[in-house]
């Protein structure tokens, strides 16, 4: 047989990744937030809302999250995690 991943294991891996994607949740540490609004700028579904009074974002619409990871990546303060 040929070496390397076969179609079966590739499909299985793909399936597990996709399933994991469904269970991921946003964990936000507001004390780290410096109000740069990057998560708000990039979120394509509107989970984040800026609170200009306290210079901190609010994770308001978690139900819309598609776990794309954009907010996690763009936060230079690493205040957001997806796990």
């Amino acid at each position: 047989m040929s070496e390397g991943p076969n179609l079966g294991s590739l499909l299985a891996e793909h399936w597990h990744l996709a399933r994991k994607l469904r269970s991921l949740e946003i964990h936000f540490a507001p004390e780290r937030c410096k109000g740069l609004w990057q998560c708000y700028e990039v979120c394509p579904v509107g989970c984040w809302t800026p609170d200009y009074d306290v210079r901190c974002v609010v994770f308001r619409h978690g139900e819309r999250c598609i776990a794309c990871g954009a907010c996690v990546l763009q936060c230079p303060e690493r205040a957001i995690e997806l796990r």
């Binding site: 793909h14 399933r19 994991k20 994607l21 999250c65 598609i66």
Partner: peptide, 8 residues
């Protein structure tokens, strides 16, 4: 673009 693990 709105899918979330629909690949599963």
């Amino acid at each position: 673009p709105l899918m979330r693990g629909e690949q599963a």
